[in-house]
Write a protein that binds this DNA or RNA. Structure first.
Lengths: 221, 221
DNA sequence: TGACAATATGACCACCCGGTCATATAATAA
DNA sequence: TTATTATATGACCGGGTGGTCATATTGTCA
């Protein structure tokens, strides 16, 4: 954690340092990120930096945890009454909220993206040890509930479906960034929904052509 | 491209340099990778390195292209008579061949993994400009063919399915590395096949419980 | 043998890194 | 006022970086 001196700073100065650090850590991995650049960008001398933080790792963990906290807050606000939804609605909600989060907080989203690429094992584990990663268990719980409710065929493999959903989540984000680039996330909400629906159709109904049966979407129930 | 001097080297020495460079570039991104370490590991003086290569980028592009070439060769050998297969068989083949490739050439696979994380835009574009990325168009073509043959419901969205398959590919690899770690890829072939089958079942049949119908796997045709 | 070109080599360059520390300044309490 | 404590600051440290270059060594023809 940052030293007390850092938290005694006037909030303007503190926030400037934070945003300079986020800028740096969202564009370079732990090794490549530069304390010197962060100092220059936030107009603080090198010596002052080390009055505020123990070392580079201290800042890195602090910044990543800010992003994690923000994401958790965003999702827990979006997920009230989650239990009462069907699995389809839950997945749809998660996917679209994920995209919404990236649009509303591109900086935080970029930090998460960068963290997922992190090679430095010390940096990875320092962040993971701090931040509770409750998010990872989310899909697991969803699948379990849905099976109990009989929404999912019991023969579907849990682990397979879990990894499937995880990778789909990243596919949705990839789709958005491929289509709209990093330029401001000025996408049309409808577009996102359509794409999410397409993915969901595939997951729920399969891609196989059903012969001698109703149409594609009439498959449900 | 490396200078002529490099290709005039005795193949032992040349291969030692190549493998030292692969070791380095598979464990660190472009910025963090170190020419000095590569020199030490392959027992060549710094000065000699610059007799062989123009600069760091020259080596990087050369090494990445070796990995790309190898992967293309591996897959084109595995994919003869690809057209005659059904989509299901094609996907199954691709997934299991992907895992097989990672097992047979962990170094090349690690290089690809590292490249997908690369932040440096100059490094990315230098590699992409050189290597023809025909692999990306593969799923696209498969989907088109399968729709023409009527294997896939025509209402399935092409782009959605394409991204779905791409991310599934990485899910399969993720599954393998989670279950067996990087420790030599000593997995059981049967295990891979079971996992791939689980994923395929989901894609083809959907996860939704079908009421008043036959069993899960009897869905096909 | 001698002459010329190709190759090998490591000291060296300017620059950047994370981190330290002695000192200067400001704030606080007596 | 003075004494004490908290903060600010930038020169400095050892070490690593990609890249250069003068010089030494080797290979190749005549």
């Amino acid at each position: 954690m940052p030293k007390e001196t850092f938290f005694n700073l006037p909030s303007d100065k503190r926030n400037l340092i934070i945003s300079a650090a986020m800028e740096e850590f969202s564009k370079a991995n732990y090794n490549s990120a530069s304390i010197n650049r962060i100092c220059k960008r936030s107009n603080i001398p090198k010596g002052s930096f080390y009055q505020y933080f123990e070392d580079k790792m201290d800042l890195y963990v602090y910044i990543m945890n800010l992003a994690i906290q923000e994401k958790i807050m965003f999702f827990s606000a979006a997920i009230t009454d989650f239990q009462s939804l069907t699995l389809s609605e839950q997945i749809r909600l998660l996917f679209s909220k994920g995209v919404e989060f990236a649009k509303k907080h591109p900086q935080y989203a970029a930090l998460g993206e960068q963290f997922s690429k992190e090679n430095d094992e010390a940096a990875r584990s320092a962040v993971i040890k701090e931040g509770n990663r409750q998010s990872e268990a989310l899909f697991e719980q969803m699948i379990k509930n849905a099976k109990e409710k009989g929404e999912i065929d019991s023969r579907v493999d849990d682990l397979a479906l879990n990894l499937l959903l995880q990778s789909l989540n990243s596919a949705v984000n990839k789709f958005m960034s491929e289509k709209y680039g990093n330029a401001g996330y000025e996408f049309v909400k409808e577009d996102v929904n359509n794409f999410v629906d397409s993915i969901l159709s595939i997951i729920f109904n399969g891609i196989q052509r059903k012969v001698g049966q109703g149409g594609y979407h009439e498959q449900k129930n």
